[in-house]
């Protein structure tokens, strides 16, 4: 029997995808399914689960105040982190690529020294999180030996007996984390947006310039709309990163076993999950948390993609 052409084509493609798909199922999908299974049990994490408790972990989660606090902290990051990062990265990318004074190729070029800035802005991306942690620990040190506090005290902005608390402040700990996240990621999205901007044909800018458009108008009427795909991608990635923020919070905020302090004010879902999983011996409960975080992130990505869907312009 001869298969229809379309079916044969599909089989041909599937034969190539079988390997990667198997790897994906074994190492990604299956662990998710397992996590869901474990979330229905009472499990200490060091010995096989002792009993099935159904949805009890999820019910407990619903009543867990610490979990709710952590969720709100992630939502805080979710609102501010992508917004600030994208706005800054877009601004810098624009300045580096088309923000310069007139002249140059087709009347469009970046500001003076843009090549240097591009490299400098990318630096934070090259640093590993371990180095970031050490760096910001020294910058945010809470006594007069700290970098920021040292300056603040020298300038008499703060009193040497009451240095700023930074990461140890109930109020500002999340802002400090936000600051570091933005600092860390702006450079990456700057490069992403730069690449996208360079794809935009120069004639568009020339035309805009000829029509008498200023820098701001060019930005909003030409650059922004044509970068929409990149922004959409950035938004999804940044939203996922905001739901995580594990490494920085676990290492920089006060508290033993994955930070989260002071007194829970720096806690995010990922650190709360890990503390339950590894320290408190509540691995089943932590798995339930993992499942909830998975769905939140999934829904979030879908919502972002759906809301930002636009007609695509080919050039």
């Amino acid at each position: 029997m001869r298969l229809r052409k379309k079916t044969r084509e599909r089989l041909f493609i599937a034969s190539f995808l079988a390997g990667p798909l198997a790897v994906y199922i074994i190492f990604v999908i299956w662990p998710y399914i397992e996590t869901f299974g474990y979330s229905l049990t009472e499990w200490t994490g060091v010995a096989p689960p002792s009993k099935v408790v159904g949805l009890k972990n999820y019910v407990d989660l619903f009543h867990d105040e610490s979990f709710r606090h952590a969720l709100w902290h992630n939502i805080f990051l979710l609102i501010f982190f992508p917004t600030i990062t994208i706005v800054l990265a877009m601004f810098f990318a624009f300045m580096l690529n088309v923000g310069g004074r007139r002249g140059g190729l087709g009347g469009v070029r970046g500001i003076r020294g843009s090549g240097v800035y591009r490299v400098v802005f990318f630096f934070p991306q090259v640093l590993s999180v371990a180095i970031l942690v050490i760096l910001f620990q020294a910058l945010f040190e809470t006594n007069n030996a700290g970098f920021f506090n040292g300056i603040l005290i020298k300038l008499h902005i703060t009193d040497a007996n009451h240095p700023w608390e930074f990461l140890n402040s109930n109020t500002f700990v999340l802002w400090c984390i936000l600051f570091i996240l933005v600092w860390q990621w702006v450079g990456f999205y700057l490069v992403l947006f730069s690449a996208a901007m360079q794809q935009i044909p120069r004639d568009y800018y020339e035309a805009a310039l000829l029509d008498g458009a200023g820098r701001i108008q060019t930005y909003f009427k030409v650059t922004m709309p044509l970068l929409w795909d990149s922004v959409q991608t950035a938004w999804v990635y940044l939203a996922v990163a905001a739901m995580d923020a594990f490494a920085l919070v676990a290492n920089l905020t006060p508290g033993s076993n994955f930070g989260g302090g002071p007194d829970g004010h720096g806690e995010v879902l990922a650190t709360y999950l890990m503390r339950n999983f590894q320290t408190a011996g509540k691995a089943g409960y932590a798995c339930a948390m993992g499942v909830v975080i998975f769905f939140i992130t999934l829904i979030l990505s879908l919502v972002v993609l759906r809301l930002t869907r636009r007609e695509r312009l080919e050039y």
Binding site: N143, N161, H162, P163, L167
Partner: peptide, 24 residues
């Protein structure tokens, strides 16, 4: 009574122990 090193409540073990070593 203000007997604490200012800011010590936010220091890591290495930071605070080093301050102590330095006679602060």
């Amino acid at each position: 009574k203000g007997y604490m090193l200012p800011g010590t409540e936010g220091l890591t073990h290495i930071q605070s122990q080093t301050q102590w070593n330095q006679g602060k």
